[in-house]
Design a protein around this nucleic acid. Sequence first.
DNA 1: TAGTGGTCTAGACCACATA
DNA 2: ATGTGGTCTAGACCACTAT
Lengths: 241, 241
Amino acid sequence: MAPSTDTPTYLAVAGVLARSLSSAKPGSRLPSENELARTYGLHRQTARAVLQELERRHLVRRVRGRGTFVASLIDYRVGPGAAPSFSETVRRTGAAPRSETESIRLRAAPAAVRAELELATGAQVYLISRRRFVDDELVGCGDTYLAADLVPDLPRRLHRSASLYEALTEGYDLEPVRAVYRAEVELASERVTRRLGLDAQPWTIATRGIAECARLRRPIEVTAGWLRADVFRLVVEFGGR
Amino acid sequence: MAPSTDTPTYLAVAGVLARSLSSAKPGSRLPSENELARTYGLHRQTARAVLQELERRHLVRRVRGRGTFVASLIDYRVGPGAAPSFSETVRRTGAAPRSETESIRLRAAPAAVRAELELATGAQVYLISRRRFVDDELVGCGDTYLAADLVPDLPRRLHRSASLYEALTEGYDLEPVRAVYRAEVELASERVTRRLGLDAQPWTIATRGIAECARLRRPIEVTAGWLRADVFRLVVEFGGR
DNA sequence: TAGTGGTCTAGACCACATA
DNA sequence: ATGTGGTCTAGACCACTAT
């Protein structure tokens, strides 16, 4: 409240709140902008700056009409051994992962995918669009391209909330294994922003992978995914342990 | 200027500027907040929001008293083969890297470092603090711990702007090779924030590595580094190409 | 309907960099 | 001395979510 030194008021208050947040329960609500302004004797815009600073640090998430809530970062570990699994990553933190198939569409393979899957010109692929949730909060989305001839009748056999991996292994005897994997931190495109239900383009962990089937000795799927970078933290590890 | 639709003014103007930025020369100056307000007929705070939005997207960097400047992101590629070199990474983009030794201090090894370097209790290490520049802009900093017995007389033999790697290979016949490597995106600590000369804690790519010497068959150095995430972009790659 | 966060204007003072 | 970005108050309207 009293800016005794040169450190700005909103950073001072943010520091106070930040310290108290470390022991707060994820998902619990913070004071609103108006409450904060009242209790610290600030203008609403200054109180707002406090909460925005906490949001910038990924300590809270704010949603219009509802409030400001304590966030908890999930480490998204990437190593030479294995590409990370969304569900396992989330479950390890004690939260509840959920994946939902938005749509399954049959279409001619785009050129890039055709090259990666070693398909002939005009070959068809299934494009499977999915959304990822943590504790029922939408935190990511992804697309998978599958050579259509390998998974006949897929739309009927993959239901909305089923695991794609399980469908492939158990339904089609395909055992996808990651051959190429790439992850980077990037600003969401407008399309991904819309899919995530956000206004402003969020930073994301963008992944792209090609999986092969050992039995068939050929690449069978291409996946691209985006996870909100204010929910997941990219961690890379080589060697050690 | 005219909010014909529901998309806010500051995002509309930011979109216009963002498109024009893709063909702008990195380092060149954007209009100031006041100029922007004048040309678009906005209040200064709204013009400010425009430039802050561009900063949030890492398209520009702003510095108090000087102005807003076009930024250029540098990919910081990490793969199973090799840990990236700061200098090579920067040089490949056509920019000018520079590393500067801030200080070299002799001290008892901290417990964590002692374990990683397999040193006896009370063993001494050199702590070398360095700063990283791109085109004379401070973009990172780092610390290196070296077992003191391996590099006698180091403070006199490593000058301010020399390469530490070259000093080790040519001056001491040590050939450090990365054994363990870890990179993650994290908010800078207050200490790192100060070293980077910033007010607000920036997001950084934080790295930590242990290097061994093949000849001696033992770990010889521990390094920790922080690079501004609005200057570098973390990219991880496995397999392929 | 009340409360939340999101946007915008008006106007002020400040610290800092440059000339 | 001027211009830059950084902070702060005052007060307004809006869209969205809950009840």
